[in-house]
Design a binder for these strands. Structure first.
Ligand code: MN
Ligand code: MN
Ligand code: ZN
Ligand code: ZN
Lengths: 149, 149
DNA sequence: CTATTTTTGACATTGATTTTCATTTTCAAT
DNA sequence: ATTGAAAATGAAAATCAATGTCAAAAATAG
């Protein structure tokens, strides 16, 4: 159940805050809750626009800082796709994944490929590289967008 | 021979300028020549710093515009690696390639993998995506840097 | 409730990129 | 070589997302 996942994460956030001597505020909670519920790749701006509808008294700064906090705490990761803006997504207890990005509607589909990972390791090995991270992004038209163009 | 490649490219640039009714300036030539000669992944700033040593009267603006022109004309491509700054590299009549990037010294190694490309196409197909472009970047320590750390 | 510490909102700053505009240079036609 | 129209240039300003500052507000322990 999505709800349960979200609640588990919120509780863990709460524990993290307590352990770090940070305070648990309603605004922070509102932001985190929405962030986990949406479970998407959102820019600060985008999340802020959604947060505003729930509580118009939450500022951009607060959304920005909440996301950075979640990232530092390991509950979120950020990445930049080709449009250059930083996007955050919740970290799930799943491994690395990559993305298919629609250049028309912006839809993002996640995928994993053990085969590709294996080939990457081979390539790194060939150049005596110590591989620490990587990113693979596939751009094009999604199923819907390739019809209507 | 590298020189010949470079000269061929400069001539082609000249032809492009003529066809578009643009003018051929010495400054533009100096910038393009250096850009093709270096044949690396350079930010505007980096190329500007190198250009200054050849002709200190060339401004940042001019380097910036020259690179954009080269990109529009198809002689250069730009990309952003994880540091977020836009880098340009000459387009050679070779296919798509990907990058290994050292997170310590910044060295960039190019590679190609038909196998990975094939897997990517399979993945795109699985999601009914029309694949147009992609980027794959591998980050880690290069051969030298993994020793001295 | 009070004291202490953290959080917040508004605004400022940064850093890279891009645009603006007055001046200079190119180039084709004299 | 001279000239005039169009493009290129340099310096400065504008933009834009990301981040920093700080006084006021809110949270938590005692
Ligand atoms: Mn993702
Ligand atoms: Mn390259
Ligand atoms: Zn789409
Ligand atoms: Zn290195």
């Amino acid at each position: 159940m999505k709800i349960n996942v979200k609640n588990r994460e919120l509780k863990t956030v709460r524990r993290y805050l307590y352990e770090k001597g940070l305070k648990h505020s309603l605004k922070r909670h509102t932001i985190a809750e929405l962030f986990f519920r949406e479970d998407k790749h959102l820019s600060v701006e985008e999340l802020y626009d959604m947060v505003k509808k729930i509580d118009p008294d939450i500022s951009f700064s607060t959304v920005y800082r909440a996301l950075r906090l979640l990232e530092k705490a390991g509950f979120a990761v950020s990445r930049r796709f080709m449009d250059g803006v930083k996007r955050f997504e919740p970290v799930h207890p799943k491994e690395h994944h990559d993305h298919l990005i629609c250049i028309k509607c912006g839809k993002i589909i996640e995928f994993k490929s053990k085969k590709i990972e294996k080939l990457q390791k081979e390539i790194a090995g060939k150049y005596n590289f110590e591989l620490l991270s990587y990113r693979l992004e596939l751009y094009g038209y999604c199923e819907d967008c390739k019809k209507h163009r």
